[in-house]
Simulated assay, not measured.
Amino acid sequence: MRRCKKSLVSATELSPAVLEKRRRRKYEKERKRRRKKELKMKEKMEKKGAQEVAAAVEPQHAEEESKGVIIFNRVEVCEKEELSKIERKREKRKRVKGNLTPLTGKNYKQLLSRLEARKSKLEKLKDKDQEKAQELENKMKWTNVLYKAEGVKIRDDEERLKAALKHKEKRKAQRQKQWEKRTEHVVEKMQQRQDKRRRNIRKKKVTKMEHKMEKARKKGRILPKDLEKAGVK
């Protein structure tokens, strides 16, 4: 009876914080125990599942091996045949078109220089061999027709290329002007901010000095500035 009384007294004497701490410790132990139990069950289930899958897959492998079915070689052969067909088509296109690179893209300056080079080549060839020059010209036209049929936009009009180049250069100049203007504006803004900062710092210094001088005057000190104002040297 005495022991029971002592334990009851000690339990009632304990502070709420200690009791809460004990309760939390007990709850944590139970939670860890439950977690451990769940993990063990999960491992058992995973092992069981893996064994079942292995048991199901093994007979299928054995059946395939007994039949001796090989599929991969056929796929490889089909792929090789398709690749060779694509390569043959590509080579045929090259033979038809020749080694002439199409005049495409938006680099108008380069396109104009290439077009001029082609024209000068034709002119030189006409002086030497008229027939070969005609053959080359026809080949160029035929190549352009083939590329256009494929959906490639050919840019072989000299006048249009010149106009496009002029327009591009004009836009470039405008953008450059806008960029310079923007840069000047940014620099100006930065300068204004710096000037404002300097003015504020100067103002703070003057305010601080005046505050100090006012304090000194209140204490009864006579300042040189006050003497100058009064006309006393």
Rank of each mutant, 00 (worst) to 15 (best):
R3D: 11
K6N: 15
S7Q: 06
S10A: 13
E13M: 08
L14C: 09
S15F: 00
A17C: 03
R22S: 05
R25N: 11
Y27M: 14
K36S: 14
E43A: 12
V57Q: 01
E58I: 01
E64D: 11
E65G: 02
G68V: 03
V69S: 15
E76A: 06
V77N: 14
C78R: 14
C78Q: 11
S84T: 11
K85I: 02
K97V: 07
L103Q: 00
G105V: 12
G105E: 10
R114Y: 12
R114T: 12
E116S: 03
A117W: 01
R118L: 06
K121L: 09
K121E: 15
E123L: 04
L125F: 01
K128F: 04
D129S: 09
K132Q: 14
K132T: 06
E137W: 02
N138H: 15
K141V: 12
A164G: 00
E169Q: 06
K170N: 15
K177Q: 10
Q178E: 07
Q192C: 03
D195E: 04
K196N: 13
A216S: 13
R217Q: 06
R217I: 08
R217P: 02
R217Y: 01
I222P: 00
P224V: 09
E228I: 03
G231L: 02
V232A: 07
K233M: 15
